[in-house]
């Protein structure tokens, strides 16, 4: 029962954040880049969330930030899923030397945690928002290759795939009409759980100042700039921090629920 409630709350939260990302900027009362008043006004002095250290409206920055953080995580996840699915599929179809190489490389990369891999990438490329997205997209790929490969391998062992193969279907045809089609559900659950990781990764790197430009209204960036005022203006860091945590939790729970649903039965 508690699981059900968690799922309902998580769904509501995710829908709310998505709505915020789509319509938030339209509802924002101020430009998220320009000062609107004195710095560090409290929520009581300047509703609903006060102003940040440069006098910008925090509520407007949070609203724009929803779109910024969510779309960045979405882009990074898309990159990871594209790379992961393609290479995972190739590894299943070409079990000989090519699959071996892909798996060995993915396993080697997995020795380094994804977030660290992403940081190494940013260190090499120099800070920047696009670099952060690319880094998280690439950093998550090795894990995704392995997981998607195991899903594909399971399906490739099914009787109907053997039948298709016996009937003379080519590798591409098997991949498209049988493996990918039947892997949609598990892949979706995998991608959802991964989205939570990507969201955490993006906000972690931007919190560390790796976005390059501290004026970007993004939840990790906003939390970082509020960090220096934890005593005088705690809401500056607490609000974006809470939003990030709740969003990660909610998406993660949804991902787990999807995994349960698409778990092979029988």
């Amino acid at each position: 029962m508690t699981g059900r409630i968690t799922i309902i709350i998580s769904s509501f939260w995710v829908v709310a954040v998505i709505l915020l990302a789509i319509f938030g900027p339209l509802a924002a009362p101020a430009d998220p880049f320009s000062p609107v008043g004195e710095p560090l006004l409290s929520p009581l002095e300047h509703g609903p969330m006060g102003t940040d250290a440069l006098g910008r409206d925090l509520w407007s920055r949070i609203l724009y930030g929803a779109r910024q953080s969510l779309s960045a995580a979405l882009l990074a996840t898309t990159l990871t899923v594209s790379i992961g699915t393609t290479l995972g599929l190739i590894a299943v179809l070409y079990t000989s030397w090519l699959g071996g190489i892909i798996l060995t490389l993915a396993n080697a990369a997995l020795a380094i945690p994804g977030l660290l891999l992403a940081m190494l990438f940013v260190a090499a490329m120099g800070p920047g928002y696009l670099t952060v997205i690319l880094a998280i997209g690439l950093g998550g790929a090795p894990g995704f290759i392995r997981l998607s490969r195991s899903i594909f391998a399971q399906i490739a062992d099914e009787g109907y795939v053997d039948v298709a193969r016996a009937l003379g279907a080519g590798k591409l045809r098997i991949a498209r009409n049988h493996i990918l089609l039947n892997a949609q559900g598990p892949l979706l659950s995998l991608a959802t759980t991964h989205f939570a990781w990507a969201f955490m990764g993006i906000t972690t790197l931007t919190f560390l100042g790796l976005a390059g430009d501290p004026s970007i209204p993004e939840w990790g960036v906003i939390m970082n700039s509020g960090r220096a005022f934890l005593i005088d203006a705690p809401w500056l860091a607490v609000v974006p921090g809470a939003l990030i945590s709740l969003t990660i939790l909610a998406v993660h729970h949804l991902g787990l629920e999807l995994t349960d649903r698409f778990r092979p039965r029988g």
Binding site: F33, S34, P35, P127, G128, G209, G212, D213, P214, S215
Partner: peptide
Amino acid sequence: VAWEALGAEVTLQI
């Protein structure tokens, strides 16, 4: 922000 208000497109790199 000041230069954007004047009409320039500004990139900031820290």
